[in-house]
């Protein structure tokens, strides 16, 4: 009897304490929420700060896109020189002459380019482009495009070259034995097959490039990362702008990765 009353009392005081705690928590959540809303407002809404993030995103995408195009163009040229040097080495060395000398020189230059641009940090390259090579220009976005494009070209060239090398040598022989020239064999037979194998790798290079452009702020470019950093400097709250920037990159990368995966599966299927 006594025992049950006691336990009832205990229960009621427990319930009271629970509801007390609940109320306290609600108040805390409400305060935190208000706080969150306020910082959110300060960081993104006030002075149209979200707009500068959006603009930064635009610049990031712009740099990535044009650097990619430049990288593809450079990569194609460099890979062509390197591959045709490798393939025609024997025949050309024998014939000798001026053409062979030019080819050797070009191949040497390509090798030098690959070594330098894959052997130094891209931020350093970017700063050298901005402060040394194009010191007279203050068009940071354009210089960033050039720097990232030239850097990416070195990686793309090796991707292309490995793709060409991965095609069975018999394919090249079959093409040539039918009477196709070196260029025709490359164009109709080797490159279409190489492209299929390198497409996923190429897309990954694109994803890497997108993230790498985040150092463009070093040369005063207002890209996505820089925009977030500027907000941090103005509002003195680091958490929200930086997490927002990270989330934007993450969403883009996740979407691109998903697309690459889809593409890869599609290519696998068409191989049968």
């Amino acid at each position: 009897m006594n025992l049950s009353i006691l336990s009832l009392l205990a229960a009621s005081s427990l319930g009271e304490r629970l509801s007390e705690a609940w109320n306290g928590m609600q108040a805390w959540i409400a305060a935190e929420w208000q706080d969150f809303c306020q910082t959110f407002h300060v960081n993104f809404i006030a002075s149209n700060r979200w707009l500068s993030l959006l603009k930064g995103l635009g610049i990031t995408l712009q740099i990535t896109f044009f650097a990619l195009l430049l990288g593809l163009a450079i990569g194609l040229v460099v890979a062509s020189i390197r591959s045709s040097y490798d393939k025609n080495q024997e025949a050309m060395a024998k014939r000798g002459g001026f053409g062979w000398g030019v080819m050797k020189l070009l191949n040497g230059l390509c090798k030098l380019y690959l070594t330098v641009f894959r052997g130094t940090p891209v931020v350093v390259q970017l700063m050298i482009f901005y402060f040394v090579i194009f010191a007279s220009s203050r068009n940071g976005t354009l210089i960033a495009i050039i720097a990232f494009g030239v850097n990416s070209g070195a990686y793309v060239a090796e991707i292309f070259r490995s793709g060409i090398a991965s095609v069975d040598a018999g394919q090249f022989e079959a093409g040539r034995s039918l009477g196709f020239s070196y260029l025709q064999t490359m164009l109709y037979i080797i490159i279409p097959q190489a492209f299929k194998t390198i497409l996923p790798t190429l897309c990954n290079e694109f994803i890497v490039l997108l993230k790498e452009t985040s150092v463009a702020g070093y040369v005063g470019v207002m890209d996505l990362t820089k925009a977030g950093d500027i907000i941090r400097g103005r509002t003195f709250s680091a958490f929200m702008p930086l997490i927002a920037v990270a989330l934007i990159y993450l969403v883009m990368v996740v979407i691109l990765t998903w697309l690459v995966g889809k593409l890869e599966r599609r290519l696998k299927k068409s191989e049968r």
């Binding site: 069975d168 079959a174 034995s177 039918l178 009477g179 020239s181 097959q193 299929k196």
Partner: peptide
Amino acid sequence: VNLHRQKMGMVFQHFNLFPH
């Protein structure tokens, strides 16, 4: 060279058909 090869058909051990 390319015209000469047009006159000489070649068949390889591993067929070398163009898979694409």
